[in-house]
Design a protein around this nucleic acid. Sequence first.
DNA 1: AGGGTTTTCGCCTGCCGGGCATAAACTAGG
DNA 2: CCTAGTTTATGCCCGGCAGGCGAAAACCCT
Lengths: 237, 237
Amino acid sequence: MDEAAPLPDAPGPSPYRLAAPVVNAVVLRVTHRLETLLWRRSRPPAEDCWSLPGGFVRQGESLEGAMRRHLAEKVGVTDVGHLEQLDSHSADTHPELWLLDVSYLALIPRGAEPRLPPDTEWHAVEELPTVAFGHAGAIGRAHERLRGKLSYSNAAFALAPPRFTLRELADVYEAVFGYAVSPTNLGRVLGRDGLLAPTGGHRRAGSAGGRPAAEFAFTRRELVVSRPLAAFKPPDT
Amino acid sequence: MDEAAPLPDAPGPSPYRLAAPVVNAVVLRVTHRLETLLWRRSRPPAEDCWSLPGGFVRQGESLEGAMRRHLAEKVGVTDVGHLEQLDSHSADTHPELWLLDVSYLALIPRGAEPRLPPDTEWHAVEELPTVAFGHAGAIGRAHERLRGKLSYSNAAFALAPPRFTLRELADVYEAVFGYAVSPTNLGRVLGRDGLLAPTGGHRRAGSAGGRPAAEFAFTRRELVVSRPLAAFKPPDT
DNA sequence: AGGGTTTTCGCCTGCCGGGCATAAACTAGG
DNA sequence: CCTAGTTTATGCCCGGCAGGCGAAAACCCT
């Protein structure tokens, strides 16, 4: 990540042309549904179409640094719960400029309400408008990846608020998976792996009554995978 | 992957400099141990050091295409069981040439013996020589990733020969994990998920005798993840 | 005080990973 | 042919975990 790369044998004048590095992100958050951040283009190409937020990488800048800069400068997103590289691909669609596109997945915690500029909006992942540059495929892959991560890691820490009830956490899972998830089992599974712990606090009951819910929080705010290693575990355990 | 990327708002003369896209691969295979392919550099920089095989990307070429081309042209590797992108990073260590380095993980099936040029060699992952450009870190991350994939997918199809006994398959796992794996349980787990099936054939016993082992093969030769979805499964199942 | 609502706790069940003992199948040597 | 040794396959059993269900707890409103 912070290491040097190999230099070519004979860079010189080089028969190879150069590319402009570009980053862009599938930014996901959960409200009552799963939403992604789209940016309405006001200039050609693809004028008046939607696309993923992103932009050029400056020399001397790390790719992740460039991604965070664009999220902060262009769409006002500073509170990123988790940022992860998806894939890179070469895009030579424009004859004058060869682009090398590195895409990211960014997860925004609930409760962080970035002040969006007027040309960016949240859109439900299930009802996307027409998006340019084949970005719809990237959003689909990001959604699929998120589903996987939620089922074998504590990735939900990056989508949930800092403290939450089991019901609220289950709502996050339901928005991503698209079907009902039991708050009871969710708490048991995550708790057994030591990823989730009660804070001791309680919420006041809603206007309809009901027992006050206990407040929980994730024990770690970085990604921890717990499940897959169970398949063939080391002998000492 | 094959889609277009966003074009900048104002490419023009552009205050942004351009980078040379480079690909390189952590090529892994299993003999009696886990090995990776290294390339001895004969020219500066890092002369007489080892590094990962790879090279420049041509314009109009996909990243994966460039990776396969370099594996075939430079190190004679054409039989790649699985090829997957790891991560990309910007490397501006050289003042005259800004590199954008995309690294891959390549798995070579047992039995495929590429004809290596004299400047490339297999090295045990546990006893690496001095490698340049921080590539040692990339090899470590690739190894870690492979461990994860073996435990929740059929990724071993890309390391094992087309047909094999359970003992031989367990040897592959042991070389990657570093500890003993039971052939019996391995066959049961992979068989239950429908990833592994007996071919009906049998091997002749070795010179020391023993019951002839049944021959197995993977049912699919592309990556299938079976385990993680068990955590919170869809309601209809 | 009582009915309605939401959360929490406890019990039960079925499945799966995984260890172990036993049976099966073969080689080599006498 | 028979036996000892070696390797693989099969069946059984145990513990743990996901997950469903019902009962109890705790609260609101009337």
